[in-house]
Structures are given as C-alpha cells and as structure tokens.
Amino acid sequence: MLNPNLDQIQLSKEEYERYSRHLILPEVGLEGQKRLKAASVLCIGTGGLGSPLLLYLAAAGIGNIGIVDFDIVDRSNLQRQVIHGTSWIGKPKIQSAKDRILEINPYCQVDLYETRLSAENALDIMRPYDIVIDGTDNFPTRYLVNDACVMLGKPNVYGSIFRFEGQATVFNYQDGPNYRDLYPEPPPPGLVPSCAEGGVLGILPGIIGVIQATEAVKIILGQGTTLNGRLLLYDALQMKFRELKLRPNPIRPVIEKLIDYEEFCGIPQAKAEEAKQQAAMEEMTVQELKQLLESGSNDFVLLDVRNPNEYEIARIPGSVLVPLPEIESGSGVEKVKELLNGHRLIAHCKMGGRSAKALGILHQAGIEGTNVKGGIQAWSREIDSSVPEY
C-alpha cells in the first residue's frame, strides 16, 4: 500500500515526539511519517544484513514489519548480528528480533514467519507487504525472493556481503532490472565461500544493511533517487564506493512460476557428487585421530589445509600447514610430496570440506590420503575443548 489513504492514519502525541526529527524535514513531514506508519516491509533473514536494517526500520516508524527466519542465535553471530544479544544464544532469531524491535518502537506491528522460505510458501508470505528486503546469504533463496517479487510486482531491496566487500541495489522497481539481469545463471556450488569459510568484517553488514533500510524508506516516501538500475559496490578496506549500471535484459526468460531453486543452483547434484567422493575417500573420526596421536606412531603426516591465520587461532598438535590455495595452484602438491616421504597422509581443515577438496586434488597427483571428519571443529567439541572454536 505505497499510496495509502493518509486521512485514516493518525499519530499519537507520543509519536509526534518520537518522530520529531522526521517531522521537521520537509521531505518527510507529517505526510511522510504517516506513509511510514502505513507501510509494510518484509525482511527475509535476521542475520548480518537483517539486524541493522530492522533496527532502523523500526526506529523510522515502519508500521508493519514482517520477518522470515528459522535459525537460532549462535555465539558466532554476535560479531555482526547486532539485533541479537548474548542472553538469546540458542533461541530463535525472530523472537530475539521482535523483542528488540518492540523495545525500540512499541508502535510497530511485527509479524513472524519461523520457517524456511520456499517455492511453496513464498508468494503467500510476501503478498501482504509493500516492499521485500533480501537479507539472505545463499543463491537459491536470492533467486526465489527475486522471482516471487517479480510475480507479485514487489520492489526487492537487495544486499550482499563477503569479507570486506558489499553490494546493494533495488530490483524490480519502476520497470527496472531484477536479480536475473545481474546474475542470469547461478555460480557453481562451492565457488563462492560462505561467511563461515571466508569470514566477514563485522561492521560491513551494518553499512550495507543501513543502505537497504535507506532505500526502503525512500521508496515509501517517494523521495530522492533510488538504486534502481544502479549496483552500489563498497570496499571497506579501501573505503571506496563505486557504481555499475544495470539494465533489464530484453531477452531474459519470463518468470511465470516458482521453481525448485536448489535444483536450479545445482545443489542436489553437488551434494550427490560430494557424497560420491566421500564414499570413495577414506575417512577417520577425531577419536581415531586421537588414538593414533597417542600411540606414538610416526608413520603419518597430519596435514592442515586451512589458511595461516586460522592455523594461528587453533591447531591440532603435530599438524603441518599447507593451505588449500597452495595445493590448488600446484606448488603445495610438491610440498606435500616432500613432507610425506613415503608416510601416510591424514588431512583436516575447519569442518572437513576443504580437506576433502585438497585430497581430491592430491589424488589426481597420485597421492592418497585420509580425511578427518568434522575437522578441527569436531576436535574442539569432542576431544579438546581448550582448542578455540571460531
């Protein structure tokens, strides 16, 4: 309802005081604040992006905020997901978010959808809202959100983050481009590491999330120039912003129905191939590794394929570091051959994925090895709790 009947919207005396700094802005004023109160915004995700944008949408006076999330608060979230607190660890993120929103602004109506967004429920969940904000971190959900917004005619305020870089734009607004104009095809599974693997500067999602909130408010107010047709790129290390022009692709496929987005992004195929490789790959548990280390045997090399900074954080005693990028480039393969010198190879990483990939490369070079299931994370949880989890 981006063009509401403002005569039906009233502000209380307390709201006049609360929004006073908005009311004195000519671009907002009483009419604009009523528009914000009449508006409804759906946020997909309450993680790094969802946290700051929800805080500011609530403070701005958005009347109806919907939240979709099915995750629980983890200690590792708190470095960047500022809407959650330590007391909420182990509890649902959407409940944590709702409590914080209502503490900021009790005049907000908060709708909760504690579910995974899917092709079966996306249209019903998104239909009642004026604007959808994509705070997700995976390609299947991004394509799903995009396609549902196209079918429903909803603006899609997009953001994404990785390491020190972020991007934001507005899709499907005023005949502008949508997500498929930026990414016609999804990247191969595993090509783009997750934040859990690649890391992210905790402040970065705050900047991108606030940009998303700003765009949503501008759309509601009908003020300024939105990011429609412009992809804003941000580099936190260099403190630089730059823009890329986006245009609708005249020959893009017409979106008429929602599909299986896991299948579209190649997730089942990748999982099947991974399972096939794991079935062919020898594995050992951390308990078995512990027994081997305690036996005093010296006929093996324990290879750690994580990055050097991860090795500084935590390590398994006796492990030798050869990072996966070195193995992928070829230089690490020769290094491993020299280390082995006829000994047995055992490899690990943080959770088991990168070491399995390393062993696959080494296998092609004629080197066989055993993968440690669960990696150093399992070692910390099941063997030695003094080893930090990260």
Rank of each mutant, 00 (worst) to 15 (best):
D71G: 14
I62Q: 11
G63Q: 15
S160K: 00
Y113L: 05
T141K: 00
I131K: 03
K91L: 12
Q167T: 11
I89K: 02
R163V: 06
D134C: 08
K154C: 06
N138I: 07
I67P: 15
D99E: 14
R163K: 15
D137V: 05
Y129T: 01
N138V: 00
N105P: 01
D99A: 10
T86A: 11
F139L: 04
R127D: 08
E103Y: 11
Y107S: 15
C149S: 08
N121E: 09
V132P: 00
K91F: 04
R80D: 06
N156P: 04
D74A: 15
D74R: 01
I161E: 02
V82F: 01
D130C: 07
G153V: 07
D147A: 06
N138R: 10
F70W: 14
D71P: 10
I161V: 15
C108A: 14
F164A: 06
D111T: 13
I104A: 12
D69H: 10
N105E: 07
M151I: 14
A97D: 11
N121A: 12
H84I: 10
G159I: 02
N105A: 10
L144E: 03
N77D: 14
P106Q: 13
N77G: 13
E165M: 14
R142P: 09
Y113A: 02
K154T: 08
L78A: 02
W88E: 14
N121P: 06
Y143V: 02
Y158D: 05
N77M: 12
C108P: 01
I131P: 00
A148D: 02
K93E: 13
E114C: 02
R142G: 02
D134N: 04
E165L: 12
D74K: 11
D134T: 05
R116F: 10
T86P: 00
S76E: 05
L152C: 06
E120C: 00
A97W: 11
S76F: 01
Y129W: 01
V157N: 02
Y158S: 05
F162E: 03
I133N: 01
Q167G: 04
A122L: 08
V73A: 11
D137N: 08
L112Q: 12
K154V: 11
D74Y: 00
V110I: 13
Y107T: 14
K154G: 04
D130S: 04
G90I: 07
G153C: 12
Q109I: 09
V132A: 01
V73G: 11
I94D: 05
G63K: 15
N105I: 04
V110L: 13
P155Y: 11
S76V: 09
D137Q: 11
G166K: 02
M126G: 00
V110F: 13
E103R: 13
Y113P: 07
L117H: 03
D147N: 07
Y113S: 04
P128Y: 07
I65D: 14
G90K: 08
P106M: 05
